[in-house]
Design a protein around this nucleic acid. Structure first.
Lengths: 215, 215
DNA sequence: TAGATTGTTAATCGATTAACAATC
DNA sequence: TAGATTGTTAATCGATTAACAATC
């Protein structure tokens, strides 16, 4: 048991926290001093009780009648997610998905900064993509170790995904955000976050089907 | 109650079905005639009981000792997800994310085909992106209605997302796959599937944090 | 027959929903 | 004080896990 108590949250809660954060930042910009769970819930189409429980887990303390002081609730969420200090990430695989992610400006607001991009294709090594020079993948493990990079974004072709993941781990990377459809085999201490477009599409397709047959 | 009984599945089950499908197709290609839930579970790192329950919901019938006949189980999953007939989709917003999705070859194997791409930027209207001509967004609603397109992929800038979603609905689109961070307001009959990179990142970040404080 | 796997029924676990007391 | 909101405790719901009978 560590000295500092840190509550852990379920996945559903974790997935909602960024939605609150985005809204709260927007509310702050428009000058609001307090945010109540009720208002947040209404704005996002969620149940107020869910929002209250989620906010409670961050350790923030609200005031009856007023809600949560804006700066406190924003900091509490950022703190809880580990977004108060941005982590460095490597992106490997500068194909269309990799390029899209390199172009996404929002990551810095979500505690992550892509500090380098890698590929094995000589035709694109050395070129600039969204302001970042593409480096040779051969240099990745050593650079990762030297820069203490903890997060690897995997956007390579499915067939080479496992090999590249192995190289990431060799470089000391502790969390892999996997955009390929490959099921990776990694040591227990490595965190895997899979991004499955097919899974989302399955939920959508099935709903469409159910909706159709009920009408 | 419709004449044809169709079981509905929970979201977790729906999200796993495409993983099974991908593996089973691969096994079929390498000549396997049967697939047992046990093998599928081991291959994907899942609990065999979960796999058995998931496969049961598709209506497929397996044989003790052997497992499921390959063609039958593949068809059962495709049928259940509505992937036996591909649905047409429009993609609106040919920025970096839109371009990446246009370049993704895998959708046809998941019951969807992007039949047209739209944008409002005169500089890219008329150009070809991954073999598809970018059309003027002004023409989208009418074309959607004429072609009976049911799925809209939303990859525009956050600030115009709601307006474009409204246009989609005007064109009769019934399901919106939302890649923007905007919380959309749509009529009850419209299906929303939100793709939240920030949510995934939150799960990853929090795990990284918990892992770190436990060591 | 023996044994692996399916399919079903029951138990556990966790998330959501409901109810309500505490508080400013 | 009255009323809106927080924070907590209990009830419900659904998914996961466990146990086991049925079957080829």
């Amino acid at each position: 048991m560590s000295q500092m108590e840190r509550k852990t949250a379920g996945v559903p809660t974790l997935k909602r926290l960024p939605l609150y954060l985005r809204l709260l930042r927007k509310m702050k910009e428009s000058g609001e001093e307090y945010a109540s769970g009720t208002v947040v819930a209404k704005e996002l189409g969620l149940d107020p009780i869910v929002v209250r429980k989620d906010l409670a887990i961050t350790g923030a303390v609200g005031r009856p009648r007023l809600g949560f002081p804006m700066d406190e609730i924003i900091s509490a969420i950022e703190e809880f997610l580990g977004w108060s200090n941005t982590s460095d990430a490597f992106l490997i695989g500068v194909g269309s998905m990799g390029t899209a992610l390199l172009g996404y400006k929002g990551f810095e607001q979500h505690g992550m900064r892509i500090v380098a991009a890698f590929d094995n294709n000589p035709a694109i090594i050395g070129t600039e993509v969204h302001g970042k020079t593409v480096l040779d993948i051969a240099k990745m493990p050593e650079l990762a170790r030297r820069m203490h990079v903890q997060i690897g974004i995997l956007t390579v072709t499915a067939s080479v995904a496992q090999g590249v993941a192995d190289k990431m781990i060799e470089g000391g990377i502790r969390a892999i955000w996997n955009f390929t459809p490959t099921s990776l085999d990694v040591p227990a201490h490595v965190i895997l976050q899979r991004e499955e477009l097919a899974s989302s599409l399955a939920v959508l397709s099935h709903r469409l089907l159910v909706e159709s047959s009920n009408i």
